[in-house]
Design a protein around this nucleic acid. Structure first.
Lengths: 66, 66
DNA sequence: GCATTATGCAATATATATTTGTCTTTTTGA
DNA sequence: TCAAAAAGACAAATATATATTGCATAATGC
């Protein structure tokens, strides 16, 4: 599923996918695919994104069990 | 760094590494290495572990920025 | 209209997460 | 003590996250 919370947090900081990618040290495509929900990022990448956007793991990446 | 919070949550549920591994559908080594802090697990695996242990991502995997 | 920026998509290449298997060491309980 | 279970360590193989490149499209401002 799409990660709309990540997209909102990024826009909130007025960052493009490319800018956030540079901040966390990955490629633009990686950020784009995570927002599209087509990726299973690593914990370290999730943490880097959280730190860059001032959010926690639960803020951006938590999904409830079914 | 070692993930002592994960180990404590696992022991709290009286599970061995092998049992938790089976619950979340990975190998024993993967769980062991995550606890030893020698691994960078994927988000889906982190979520599966959280769901199995009744914890959140922040509970088990959050690390503060330096 | 036109140029620029942002985003999505796809193919291939590389790095690394994860598996499988085996062995050793530590813990635990009888 | 001793045996069994649990956990750590190591290496090779496989699966997949991520990089790279290039192109298509939508949105925006000039």
């Amino acid at each position: 599923m799409k990660n709309i919370k990540l997209k909102m947090a990024r826009v909130e900081h007025d960052l493009s996918q490319a800018e956030l990618a540079e901040l966390v040290g990955v490629s633009r495509q990686t950020i784009g695919l995570i927002e599209l929900g087509k990726y299973n990022p690593t914990l370290n990448l999730c943490l880097a994104i959280c730190h860059a956007l001032g959010k926690t793991l639960d803020d951006l990446f938590w999904v409830d069990p079914e």
